[in-house]
Design a protein around this nucleic acid. Structure first.
Lengths: 114, 114
DNA sequence: CTGTCATTTCCATGATTATCGAAAAGAGGT
DNA sequence: ACCTCTTTTCGATAATCATGGAAATGACAG
């Protein structure tokens, strides 16, 4: 993870609707949710939601996949973990701290479920 | 951690200088750094740096403490950990994932060092 | 090929944010 | 009380971002 990517990701999350949306997708798991279902859940107009989804997608935090007529969006756990690791990098000069823990729903888990 | 606090924290970090600054303080450890030393390290004018430090402070990510004539700023590891936990909350519906790891330089560590 | 459903793009408006020089404010030391 | 060092506030400018209705796009079923 480099600085511009981290800034893009943090900026994408630093907005009421997008933060709610991302956390919704984190809870939803690797299967994700359709754009319409998300719009219903958040009570946000379609055009606004599309804008926010695009922001999260460009920031690399969210994946897009077509299923029938819908677009399924899902949280990218790897990206989230990389972002967290970047924030905590060399914490305390690397002496006392070594977090490195992450959400375990990686690509492998996803393939199993799918 | 509630949503407005998380948005404030994420927004504070979503800026080139502030992200660099926060990571600098994370590396610096619980002792922190003086505002002037930070300005030198980042090559940012004093007035700009003060603005960014205030943003991080209002977002609760950074602590302020006077030492002689200088103001020492240090990263608030607890706040960082709470933010990360908020992001990953109920990951995958709480089934496969339970990260919960954090930087260990908490207040106790700080008191020991000080 | 046509109709329909799901989603995105366009566009104008209003709101927030970053920048940095100059001046003010706060804290010690003497 | 005064001087000096450190940091913050002020203020104007430029840039970026959020919003939502209307129109366009893309995908599938019949």
């Amino acid at each position: 993870m480099d600085s511009p990517s981290a800034i893009a990701a943090l900026g994408a999350l630093a907005q009421e609707h997008r933060l709610t949306l991302f956390r919704l997708l984190v809870r939803a798991g690797p299967e994700g949710m359709a754009a319409g279902a998300i719009a219903d859940a958040l009570g946000v107009p379609n055009s606004s939601l599309s804008f926010h989804l695009a922001q999260l997608h460009r920031a690399g935090l969210v994946r897009q996949e077509r299923r029938h007529r819908s677009l399924l969006y899902s949280a990218d756990y790897d990206a989230m973990n990389r972002l967290v690791a970047y924030l905590m990098e060399n914490c305390c000069g690397g002496q006392a701290c070594a977090p490195e823990t992450a959400c375990t729903a990686t690509e492998d888990t996803r393939r199993k479920k799918a």
